[in-house]
Amino acid sequence: MGAPMESKSKSLWSHAWDSLKKDKTAVFSLAIISIYVLIAILTVTGVVASGWEKEVGASYLPPSAEHIFGTDIFGRSIFLKTLKGVEMAIAIGLITALISTVIGVILGLTAGYFGGKVDETIVWFYTSLASIPYIMLLFAIMFVLGKGTGTLFIALGVTSWVPLCRLVRGEVMRHKEREYVQAASALGAGHRRRMLKHILPNILHIVIIQFSLRFQTAIKSEVILSYLGLGVQGVPSWGTMIDDSKLELARGVWWQLGAATLAMFILVLALNLLGDALRDALDPKLKGKA
């Protein structure tokens, strides 16, 4: 684009931050995500929604001024359950995205940097893994590991790292021959230092964009697993709430479905929009393409 040359050159990051700040959708999305994270922190510490298990009224009360999202079959407040569900959604998003990022970055860096047999083996492994459709792989792993929140994190994490690994590998291959890496090696930097200290910061934008993607796919996948009875047990999650509502709808009880869907919609939409804005801000190739 024909942007005027600036007297002082800026780093990619400060540049990206500037363009993010100007993007109203991005700022708004970031604000929403921060609110959700704040709610999650407050529910974990028990400040908010600690009484979600308590009976607050009769069974299946419709939304009213007193119970804004109504009550569920046990007379518990849907509003408090939805708030408590934020905690699980953020945990699922964060932990699975973290697992898949760590695997994807380590394997991608190793494959791209060392090349040769190492690269061939890693590519072979992830091509094989990616040949099993995501949802079937997820079912298979959940089925074998058994129900539970821990296995949910693991299953969602180990099934979703391939796209990131592919991107990191490709980018590392382009970077490793560059002068700055050669300079580092001339200065005596070892393989690990070159990979982590020199190349990784230059490909970090891909990692961040993919992280935001994984975060929201994990939240959506939890719903499907809940329907199959493989979801979160014991504490409220939006997935189990949506699943519970399949028996309630026929009786005209729509508020549990509505509340959980709305809560999830706002968070996932914000993550989606932020992901798009991040991509525009961090990936110079896409600049100006809207």
């Binding site: 699943d243 999830m264 939409l269």
Partner: peptide, 13 residues
Amino acid sequence: VGMMSIPSLAYIL
């Protein structure tokens, strides 16, 4: 993007 942000199960239900 909005349509993609609603879980498939919610649509079906």
